[in-house]
Write a protein that binds this DNA or RNA. Sequence first.
DNA 1: AATATTCCCGACTATTAAAGTCGGGAAGAA
DNA 2: TTCTTCCCGACTTTAATAGTCGGGAATATT
Lengths: 146, 146
Amino acid sequence: MLVPPKKNQYALRAIFELAKHMDQGPVKISEIATAQSIPLRFLEVILNQLKASGIVDSKRGFYGGYFLVKPPNQVSVGDVMRFLSRDLSPSDCIACVSKTSCPFDGQCAFSSMWIRVKQATFNIYDETSFQDLIDREQDAGWSSQQ
Amino acid sequence: MLVPPKKNQYALRAIFELAKHMDQGPVKISEIATAQSIPLRFLEVILNQLKASGIVDSKRGFYGGYFLVKPPNQVSVGDVMRFLSRDLSPSDCIACVSKTSCPFDGQCAFSSMWIRVKQATFNIYDETSFQDLIDREQDAGWSSQQ
DNA sequence: AATATTCCCGACTATTAAAGTCGGGAAGAA
DNA sequence: TTCTTCCCGACTTTAATAGTCGGGAATATT
């Protein structure tokens, strides 16, 4: 309950992996898939979609792969999550906001609470950059210091 | 994405309805279903489950129905949400907390962020009592002032 | 030019959880 | 004893997520 879809988690982990390889040239999908234990063909779909966000870009051919467009401190988890929910109906993003999700069409006692929950969530997403994530991994000693 | 399941929303709305009828004797499932636009047979299942939480209780027969055990200011949204996720695996409640949901078994850069999101969410749930919800409905003029 | 490598694209299938239904049984009141 | 209401288990349906597949298009190497 309330856990982000696996697709979103895969997207975040893939971008995190790209962030760790910033300025080292394109990273192949297969490398990312291995490093982050993501099903290869599924990751293809995900990364390909993410290009439309302007967060990542790609290059084909021998030395091809994916790479981050902006430095990791200028990309936040919020950017990714917002993009992945771009063409969802409002009622899939927040409860009690439309007739389909609420019999009172948002004029209900709960709506302000749902809005606050969403805001609190995105506050955290927005203040978490991929550089922050790299730093946390370092600080915790989890990075396999390649 | 990230919207609580309809079942949970139904549960909250049903309890909200009970809260509004506090000290007026048991409320029939059919009344609740009508007032809150919840499928009747589904609501039967939900309310019946909720009895195990100690939040509601019921009485059968002619003047039977459901009622709140404690006054609305002593029951929070958090109580309900927590109960409804009681027998979910940890990985269904939060991302990156076990091997099944995270290849690094929680030792990953994202885990602290997911934990913070969950905490922020439940902070809001916990500080929202059903009396608060009644008051909000009143203040907004949405209650059908019976 | 030929080949190898990599991303690209659309369509497809599989799996799972959520949502909702149903028939009949038990308690309680009139 | 009848009516009303909750109770219980099993069942079906629906929809979203997750994941796969075959082949095509760039790009670089030889």
